[in-house]
Design a protein around this nucleic acid. Structure first.
Lengths: 223, 223
DNA sequence: ACCTGAACACCGTTCAAGT
DNA sequence: ACCTGAACACCGTTCAAGT
């Protein structure tokens, strides 16, 4: 590659090099990848996953319909990158929500759950792309980053077990139970336009609080 | 419509009518709709939702790529029909599972939950199509039928409240909590190839049992 | 290295036409 | 009524070519 430059260094190449510097913005040098992800995320939020096309993304970025292939092997890779960005955003929102309440296990669990459901309601198409099925071998980063929210819950659970507010037992199983409940609420809320899980008279916070409280206190009648 | 037949009854139409009767199978008269749904479900299971096309379905059914439009307004309508069939199948499997155990609330809840998760694992692409977002006004039947599993859970919950095994309180909220947990387990199992929620050493039944038990007994430490 | 234009085999959908 | 063939505007992806 380097030899190529030296061997072919000529007038034409010099002009090209100048153009590279001059038109940094126009040609997105070194930045096109991020630009494409940003634009794709916008289009996703506006029109949904089914009408998201590489060609539209490229057009809106001002590049040819082929430029994305310089940064992504195929459309699936773009979706994976969008999903990855989504998990990062979700993680930040959950973390912020947790930090805004006192160091109380119950309050933290509810705050994290609300943040998760609110993210889903605010970015339904994004959540859909985040929880598509991806080849774990192809996108190891994605799988890893997607566990961030799970780890955030795990921390709360382990702290709760230490301070005596949660039952003993495998903390991973407990964490997964909470996650499944919260993810289920989020997914079903999206599928049914909030009509099924949420209600008009109660806020999302109140409804999520009800679900989490039922999980904390249990559905079985104490003897 | 009827007038049209009478007014235009001629030789040509008679030949066509004969063809209609002769080639009932070939032209799927009155049955093409169901054939298309069946084939679509097969293709969905094999290749996933993203590569399901109306043209492929039509081709496999032996009709022109345009014939489906006689029975469905667009691709979305086909997906809705596939989803509807899926909910009917899920409902049958859940009902069967419930009937195979004693009239014990806990056992019934676990049986129903297992049936739900097993359906998801057996038909991951189908579940994906079932829980896409559909316009409730366009497909009222779909929304209605999709509530069948919820109603099945509700029955168990109400019986459990009556026989004293479940806590008092709004049965709908309790039912939704169970559904959200089970749906969350199903959805996350699919997204992560069962690696996240399920385990290699334990059966699906054992894992689902753990989750449901945690919900029944609660995560909070009793005082 | 990075980007483009032409080309390929596919889509969903519409419409005039056939039986 | 039910189905077909041609046509349209889109896709994702590949490849030779440009700077």
């Amino acid at each position: 590659m380097r030899t190529y430059y030296i061997d072919n260094a000529n007038m034409t190449l010099n002009i090209y090099t100048v153009n590279m510097i001059k038109s940094k913005d126009k040609y997105h040098h070194g930045n096109l990848r991020n630009t494409l992800i940003e634009i794709a995320t916008e289009l996703l939020a506006e029109d949904g996953a089914h009408s998201l096309s590489l060609r539209k993304i490229a057009q809106k970025a001002g590049v040819s319909h082929n430029a994305p292939y310089m940064h992504f092997t195929d459309k699936e890779a773009v979706l994976a990158a969008i999903a990855e960005a989504g998990f990062r955003l979700l993680s930040v929102e959950v973390e912020t929500a947790i930090n805004q309440v006192k160091k109380d296990t119950e309050k933290q669990l509810i705050a994290a759950s609300c943040a998760y459901v609110n993210f889903a309601l605010a970015h339904p198409h994004h959540l859909q792309v985040m929880f598509r099925h991806y080849d774990a071998e192809k996108y190891p980063n994605l799988i890893q980053i997607s566990q961030a929210s799970l780890d955030q819950l795990l921390k709360i659970v382990e702290a709760g077990q230490k301070n005596g507010s949660l039952i003993a037992g495998n903390p991973h199983e407990i964490t997964k139970t909470i996650w499944a409940l919260v993810h289920g609420v989020a997914a079903l809320s999206i599928a049914y336009e909030s009509k099924m899980m949420l209600s008009d008279k109660n806020s999302t916070e109140e409804v999520v609080n009800t679900f989490v409280q039922l999980l904390l206190n249990g559905l079985s009648k104490g003897v």
